[in-house]
Amino acid sequence: MIKQNLLIFISAAVVNNFVLSYFLGICPFLGVSKKTESAVSMGAAVTFVMTIAAIASNLIYNYFLAPFNIGYLMNVSFILIIASLVQVVEMFIKKTSKTLYKSLGIYLPLITTNCAILGLALFGVLREYTLLNNIFFALGAGVGFTLALVLMSGIREELEFADVPKPFKGVPIALMTAGCLALAFMGFAGLI
């Protein structure tokens, strides 16, 4: 039981990293990875929403969609859950912690269209995870996302001073860097 959940966690965090091997959440990965500080905040916000979304999507699917045989409404219901969850979380944080709101605030609305969240909910259903499995899966995916984002931002801060050939400036060199990171993460494949 513990072993299985630990395996799910490690697999989602490094072996099948959401960003680098499933390509989920590429937009924030390329957009918000210019500074380490914002990368950490974005990662924290995503992990937070992911965990709540994993719990909510699992409950909705198992206790509402599956018993009524309306699994085909999965896409519509999941995206609505995520959108409203993000709204609620944003309002809650705004009310309770001003400092947290300041560091996460601007990233929260962006998360609605982050495919990593919806992808996580869909993977959870596809792989028939239990609620506990899903929570570990979400935590792992969130840690993996944060890890990839922070590593990438560290490299990109250094790249600012590098002499990059003109056509490769901006997005192309970022993609190349991500390619190298993905190569490095492939080394984790033997871990499990």
């Binding site: 390509f23 490769f168 997005v171 192309p172 060199i173 970022a174 993609l175 190349m176 991500a178 390619g179 190298c180 993905a182 190569l183 492939m186």
Partner: peptide, 8 residues
């Protein structure tokens, strides 16, 4: 990794 590199 090939996806990132090709796209780059």
């Amino acid at each position: 990794p090939g996806a990132f590199i090709a796209m780059g």
